[in-house]
Design a protein around this nucleic acid. Sequence first.
DNA 1: GATTAGGCTTAG
Length: 770
Amino acid sequence: ATFSLRPPFQHWGTSLPPRMPRLFLWAQALFLSLPPSEEDSQQNMSPEHSSINIILFGALAKDYSESVSQGDTLLVTGFTVGNSPTAQKDKLHACNLQLAGDDAWMYVSTDSGRSSYAAKVVKYTYVPLSDLTPGVVVNVYAVVTFFKQPFRTKGTDYCSTLKITDQSNKKVGCTIFCDKLEEHPKIFKMGDIIRLHRVKTQLFNGAISLLTSHGFSVVTFDGMVGSPVVPRTSSGSFKFGEEDCQVVEALRTWAANQSLVPAEPCVPLSAVQPKTYFDLTCQLLAKAPVDSSCTLLKVWDGSKCPHPLLDVFVEPNTLEGSPTLSKDMANLTANVLVYDNHVEVARQFKPGSYLRIYNLHAVPGASRLPSNDSGQSDQMGHLGFHLHGGTSYGRGLRVLPEDSPDILDLKRILETFSESDINDSSMFEVWSTPPESFGMLTFFTLMLICTISRFPVNIAYKRTCDHTVEQVSLAEVKSRGPPQMFHIQAQLKSYQPQRLYQSLKLFCHKCKTIRDVPDDVTVGGLFSEAQKDVGPCNNGYWTLVLPLPKEPPSESPSRTLTLLMSSQLMGKGKAKELIFLKGATLEETCRIASAYSNIVPVTSPQGTMTPMDLSAPFLFRGTKRYYGCKQCSQLKVGESLGEGVEVWDEKSVADALGVQLLQYGLLMKLELQDGTGSLEALLWRDAESFFHVSAEDAAADQEAQDRVQETMDRLCPPGSSTAERPWMDLCLSAYTVEENGQRRACYQICHTDTRGTNTHTHPHATPSDT
DNA sequence: GATTAGGCTTAG
């Protein structure tokens, strides 16, 4: 992965980012033992010189850190011998062995004696907890009997505190330090199985404990007998085989007969006793910051609490997500106040996600929230829930993945709410409302169904238009026909293109045509084609010709890179602001563009410098690429450049070159439905405000692309049923297009804004601005 | 490259 431009560019004095190996492993006093040779004895070498440091660089470091264990025998070839800078300190050999580059290899022979090629065959040995001795690095398999979710330490890391045990019945404490939260063990409940690689034994208070050591890794599993053995890890390169399955299953079976786990700490809202501590598995409906040390979470688990639940009012504009009044009234919403260290954790949560809250305190009596001191006298004795500060008793909270068994159960329960029909008697039970208020009940039940059926993404899609139009059904839209504006309420049935990058288009304001953004293979091909033009170009530009080092195969022709700068700009000391580049590959152009403000790739077919085929970008600015319209551009390179131009941006460069600049846009076709029918509508003119993304950013920036994807995933969650999709308030413009003499009605979504993630409007409420 | 914590209830 060497960068062929480096030598000339270093000479030229640019600041191109170097491509250095990113990974290296400091493998200290590795597991290698060299038996003292005869020469050594003759030279009176001291015994400590039988140990030597090996340093691995690059890909080797990554591969071997995954595959070498203490005690393995290594065969090392292709190394260089260097002075060991740590010889004084570690008293090891004065030299070290450095393994870098393609020639360096290391072969690993495991305990079993079968030598083999590196990473593939390493076998881990697991030590029973009763056999642990202090001061060694080991691998263990165990059952978790106590755990704390990772919490911030006073140092640089997060810490997970665990207690684990195995068939040897020995209980061992385990402390995991790691600065990355995702690398901490994913433990959801006591009884989960854990596999720890490279943990260090340590004597503390007279007992063995385990501590993370270099190269530490962890995988966890559900502890329930019979459930699928699915490793939970964030590591992409962990080893997991048939034997692991067997170890996990053996531990599960053993643990099932041991009563290791105390009485089920997980309690549904329907079984909560006041003044107790319990674990709650729930879905987050909404959250709101209360103050710097307290956050409110509104959650439910689909069960009805027998005790009246405390309601906590917060300013609606501070609330993220959509709690529903109906769930409050049905005593389904639990208000959880999360304090101190847990606030940071809760900040990451998104409404709709599934949570488990550990050691939640059910507190009868009103909360002392400043905003509702007065209003809560009538809530005396209502149950509130507190997640106190600190981590005692494993107090904490985390998101559970949607496919974990407990969540599947919970989802099923929550689904029964959205599927419930008004005539469904289970609904009446939920309400436990006396028969005499039946009329009232029907109204509220209707409300409940309306709201819940739009769960979990009850987002208000706000119309931003300023006209007043009656809201109509899709069937009416079709029967009334164009030209007209409509307001509709609909769900997304499907959309095209499914590959969202294909929605990026280039638009010419002059000839009104839309074209696709070419992919890198196509653009790269145009650059290769342009490279064939090796002739000179003499049109009065300052020219710098850079020979490039030969690349294999050696018979390939030598290449040069030509940089051209305008004499006019040179005269003003602005030469670097606009650079023309000839002979570069696409990749090289991109790299150079990262260091200069405007790079124009050019060729010189008849000895005159001219922009490349306009199928390719005519301009690179940082990560952004700009295209010109083939039909409408009238290239004029060679004439005087940019008289009076102060700032060189895409517009002034396009003007100077006679290029008709194309504008980026997003084009999608959305199929809408509302129960009266479905309708295909385009998203084009107002697509940027719909997604809150500039199309130009979306062409160059992953984050912007993600935002488009997220919006589509919210409107149409992958694998979701219609009932789960949110409703949108949309403004629709109907117009007529003529194709082959045929007139056809066309619809476009306009004036609609998906920013409303923090707002909530009841589905039947009329947006205030319409 | 050391350090962090080393379960055992907040007090809202």
